[in-house]
Write a protein that binds this DNA or RNA. Structure first.
Length: 980
RNA sequence: GCGGAUGUGGCGAAAUUGGUAGACGCACUAGACUUAGGAUCUAGCGCCGCGAGGCAUGGGGGUUCGAGUCCCUCCAUCCGCACCA
């Protein structure tokens, strides 16, 4: 058979594609546009593993397919190159993160190139490139200079706010702003100093500065995120972490909460992602109600979604941080309350969460007045009430809320029943929304749903509360006390932030001598020399990782424009992403922030779309598939003398046993009593013992009533093939042991699904597979693995099948070693195979069922192979439809077929129905639902003809045992079903 | 606890609208060609049964002439959120 030399082929065509700039696309074209985007990677030091390319391969197939179908396809790639690992490496080694990043990118690019992706590399971008982050800073400025007008429901320039303030103060302004914003008049505003005005505007700006509590680790000299803190200590190094209030840059994403929610309805994204975003935004409808406090002028304002349960309120709970706490605490309770608040303050989020089952709280000594019943109800503080959500206070309904119930039980408070469907146990509340309200005055007899509506109307009527919508979404903290990120384009004049002028952008990341915070606890940028704007100090924190990735998709449209973030012409042409491929782990991060920025840019009229990606597909995560060997250490009682003395032999005897044998041992290494494998095991061990004896080693007879050292060990997956251990390579790495297997000819490893990681020896590197089987095989195999959206363990077993397919395809074009195709007319059978394949593959790619497309190709090639078809009229279109999957082999054969241009410029063949029509159709005929026979009918037979024919059929009649058929069901083209 | 997803041979999986369940591939078995086979080709391959046949899509129930697919219910696994009032 002619040789399919993938190494030569792939190298040749990758070079050709680069030289001929085959994948560069213009920003104008008569063709319709199609924008296929991958989530760009963070270039980590480890390089790509086989999980990364899964999505890239699928999106590459889509973009090649679209291109063959006449679209002008934008398919770019770049790097999310600001990030923590490069900075941590810099702290350890002193190497500038830019150098580390460049090296990693070079490796990534090499790996990506080797897989033959059709990226337009001329548009490559990196978020850490000043030419790129110039525009990230520019967008930051736009957001800073904006406020959110709830009346127009969009962001507006801050000047429109200033104009209103000057004219009539802020009493008529309905805006997204800080909760503590006071109402001021125009006179007050106009009387403010410049500094006062600027400070006031910060309450409205969509990027603002505010005091925020952060986790500060003095030993590491840095801020840590919540997940980097464990039980009050840093995860890395175990240093203590304290809470510290710091001025922090934040973005007012909450202004967009509602639009981020409603926008989900018009984009074609996976439902789980939408659901995660909905949960994250967490919109809930309810009411805020004021409770008077006995003996105080202040009121406790609570938020509730279940006002129907208001007559079930038997106490109130405030968050320990609540401002009301000092005011309403009585002298008798003061000490207990202060102690509790102090403890709560020092508890980390994590402690608080892990301790959720332990109900704690303290009575304040004060009582609230129930707004309807007038009852006095005690007010407690407890840390199960969060200061950050709603009003930081709750009306506790123990019969309907589990947490309130637990609290009531602990503090022996009443648990009034307010619903006739409620069934309480000793330990459980019942939050039912069924039944009718009882014991509730004017709500009695209503369903909970109606009672909620009635309740809200009543509180509004009485002026003690308002209808209210609440969100879980919090504003996004934007500043990071890190070096390797975009500098925030701000300097301070008299402690007021000022924006760096556009013409001075980019504000380049300065050089520093070390990447650690300063002694004063300032971020690393505090080490930079002359880090000031004409003597006014620049901001020291940098932007978070999500800044650059929140708009990069627009930059690809016009990646090298120095005058604009992206030209209007390019934006108008490419508009938005048609197909976005990436992991679901970004559901509430990147994917939400990007939608936020897109909507913002839309409000300012800068772009035409308010959602950046029409369609999103999540590729599944590839997990590792670890292999194991099972080791049994027998007692050696004598060794050859050259091994040294008995106490300290130079070598160890290791016997590898099968997984079944391993499983027969318990955790202590004792053979489970009564296991049926016992005799077999002894037998196998005896055989090994004999072998050992031949080389001068004696081991004690195995006594299965005692304990042995039996271990399950990871074995490197690269020396395992189809779960079978390559024994020669395994023993080569075991120089200090005598290695024996209970079955000497082959050894089957066990396997488990785990995370892919070096320590588990289960990382599979695409480079190894590319050099062994070629990129085309790897591409097709990754698609063949299963549905693209499904997570699955990586398993190299079976890659041979795909490899065999490509070789078979290749051999269709070759006779002996020479390329040979025939110009004869194809037969009907051959045409049928071709057109059936075109039809099926096009449909499959359209619905992204790429695993079945690969199967379709395999079937087609098997059929063509058995038809001995080598006809150009069949093979040429087959080459074209295969090219999105296996571009290198397709390019090679396409050129051998005599074509001068790249196969990507071919047009996708159309299938013709005429070749797919069958002469006759075989109808399976069933009687009473059980299949009995297949009867052939002409393809154009009508339903009636089929029925009549089936009934007339002698065989059927015989089966009916003389009974008359009552009903015959004909399902088009499928089944004739006869019911007796 | 809440939300979402998924359960089909030894394994990865297919079955687009309710219509011959297990396509295709791996592994396995037998055979052919070979000095050889880690190459290639042919055949077999869900389970039980010698067979006819019976049983099979996580378990149980239902709708239907007919259910992997639709409905109810229970179970298992994975993912996300998690004291959100």
């Amino acid at each position: 058979m002619a040789d399919y030399n993938f190494q030569e082929i792939e190298k040749k065509w990758q070079q050709y594609w680069r030289d001929q700039k085959v994948y560069e696309v213009p920003n104008e074209s008569d063709k319709p546009k199609y924008y296929v985007l991958d989530m760009f990677p963070y270039p980590s030091g480890a390089g790509l593993h086989v999980g990364h390319p899964l999505g890239y391969i699928a999106s590459d197939i889509v973009s090649r397919f679209k291109r063959l179908n006449g679209f002008n396809v934008l398919h770019p790639m770049g790097f999310d190159s600001f990030g923590l690992p490069a900075e941590q490496y810099a702290i350890q080694t002193g190497q500038h993160p830019a150098i580390t990043t460049d090296e990693n990118i070079a490796r990534y690019k090499e790996q990506l190139m080797a897989l033959g992706f059709s990226y337009d590399w001329s548009r490559e971008l990196r978020t850490s490139d000043p030419k790129f982050y110039k525009w990230t800073q520019w967008i930051f400025k736009l957001i800073y200079n904006s406020w959110y007008n709830n009346d127009t429901d969009k962001a507006e320039h801050i000047d429109t706010l200033v104009a209103k303030l000057e004219k009539e103060g802020n009493k008529n302004i309905n805006a997204a702003c800080d909760a503590d914003t006071p109402i001021i008049s125009a006179d007050e505003w106009n009387g403010y100093s410049e500094k006062e005005q600027q400070l006031f505007l910060l309450k409205y700006r969509l990027t603002y500065q505010a005091e925020t509590t952060v986790n500060w680790c003095p030993a590491l000299g840095t801020v840590l995120s919540n997940d980097e803190v464990k039980d009050g200590f840093s995860e890395r190094g175990g240093h203590p972490v304290i809470k510290k209030k710091m001025p922090q840059w934040s973005m007012r994403i909450t202004a967009y909460a509602d639009r981020l929610l409603s926008g989900l309805d018009k984009i074609d994204w996976p439902e789980p992602i939408k659901e995660m975003q909905r949960n994250w935004i967490g919109k809930s409808y309810g009411a805020e109600i004021d409770f008077d406090i006995d003996g105080h002028d202040e009121k406790i304002r609570v938020f509730t979604t279940r006002i129907d349960t208001i007559f079930g309120v038997s106490f109130m709970v405030l968050a320990p941080e609540s401002e009301l706490v000092p005011t309403i605490t009585t002298d008798e309770q003061k000490q207990a309350v202060v102690e509790y608040v102090e403890v709560a303050k020092n508890r980390s989020e994590r402690e608080r969460m892990s301790d959720a089952k332990n109900v704690t709280g303290v009575f304040t000594g004060s009582y609230a007045i129930h707004p309807f019943s007038g009852d006095k109800i005690p007010v407690y503080i407890a840390d199960y009430v969060l200061a950050g959500y709603g009003t930081g206070a709750v009306m506790a309904v123990p019969s309907g809320d589990q947490r309130d119930f637990d609290f009531a039980k602990k503090f022996d408070l009443p648990i009034p029943i307010i619903n006739d469907a409620q069934v309480l146990t000793e330990t459980e509340a019942d939050p039912t929304k069924e039944g009718k309200i009882i014991n509730s005055d004017f709500l009695n007899g209503l369903s909970p749903a109606n009672a909620i509506e009635r309740g809200i109307q009543e509180v509004e009527k009485r002026g003690i509360g308002v209808r209210k919508v609440n969100y879980k979404l919090r504003d996004a903290i934007f500043g990071r006390q890190r070096y390797w990120g975009e500098p925030i384009p701000v300097y301070y004049e008299d402690e007021i932030p000022k924006l760096v002028p556009d013409e001075e952008l980019p504000l380049n990341l300065p050089k520093v001598d070390e990447y650690l915070p300063t002694e004063d606890g300032d971020p690393p940028l505090g080490r930079a020399k002359d880090w000031s704007h004409n003597g006014q100090p620049y901001e020291l924190s940098t932007m978070p990782g999500w800044a650059g990735s929140s708009w990069y998709f627009f930059r690809y449209m016009d990646a090298h424009n120095d005058g604009e973030f992206c030209s209007k012409k390019a934006r108008d042409y490419w508009k938005d992403v048609d197909f976005y491929m990436g992991g679901s782990e970004h559901a509430t991060g990147h994917l939400l922030y990007s939608r936020f920025w897109t909507k913002f840019l839309y409000d300012l009229g800068i772009i035409e779309v308010d959602e950046f990606a029409k369609k999103l597909i999540n590729q599944g995560m590839i997990q590792g598939r670890s292999n194991f060997v099972y080791r049994f250490i027998p007692d050696a009682i004598s060794y050859p003398s050259e091994w040294g003395n008995k106490e300290k032999p130079e070598k160890v005897v290791e016997i590898y046993i099968s997984k079944e044998f391993y499983d027969a041992f318990d955790d202590n290494g004792i053979f489970k009593a009564g296991n049926s494998l016992k005799a077999e095991f002894i037998n196998q061990i005896n055989r090994v013992t004999k072998e050992l004896k031949d080389i001068g080693i004696r081991i004690a007879p195995v006594d299965l009533n005692r304990e042995y050292l039996v271990q399950k060990l990871h074995v490197d997956v690269s020396i395992v093939k189809d779960d079978e251990l390559i024994i020669s390579e395994f023993t080569r790495g075991k120089k200090d042991s005598i290695v024996k297997f209970v079955l000497s000819d082959s050894y089957k490893c066990g396997w488990e699904v785990e995370k892919m990681s070096k320590s588990k020896f289960n990382v599979v590197n695409p480079d190894d597979l590319v050099s062994k089987y070629g990129a085309d095989t790897l591409r097709m195999y990754e698609m063949f693995l299963g549905p693209i959206e499904q997570s699955k363990p990586w398993n190299t077993n079976g890659i041979e099948g795909v490899y065999k397919f490509l070789r078979k395809f290749w051999s269709l074009f070759h006779e002996e070693d020479t390329f040979k195709v025939s110009d004869e007319q194809p037969t009907k059978d051959e045409l049928k195979v071709l057109h059936g394949t075109i039809k099926k593959v096009s449909e499959d790619v359209d619905r992204l069922s790429l695993n079945t497309s690969v199967s379709t190709f395999m079937i087609a090639v098997n059929e063509l192979s058995s038809l001995k078809c080598n006809k150009r009229a069949i093979l040429e279109p087959m080459t074209v439809i295969l090219s999105p999957f296996a571009p290198h082999i397709a390019e090679e054969l396409w050129h051998k077929l005599g074509n001068q241009t790249s196969v990507v410029d071919a047009s996708y063949p159309k299938f013709e129905e005429q070749y797919l029509v069958e002469d006759s159709i075989e109808y399976p005929v069933s009687v009473n639902g059980k299949m009995r026979a297949k009867i052939s009918f002409p393809a154009d037979a009508s339903k009636e003809e089929v029925e009549a024919g089936a009934l007339a059929n002698e065989t059927i009649q015989k089966w009916m045992d003389g009974k008359d058929p009552r009903k015959v069901i004909v399902v088009p083209k499928k089944i004739v079903n006869i019911v007796v």
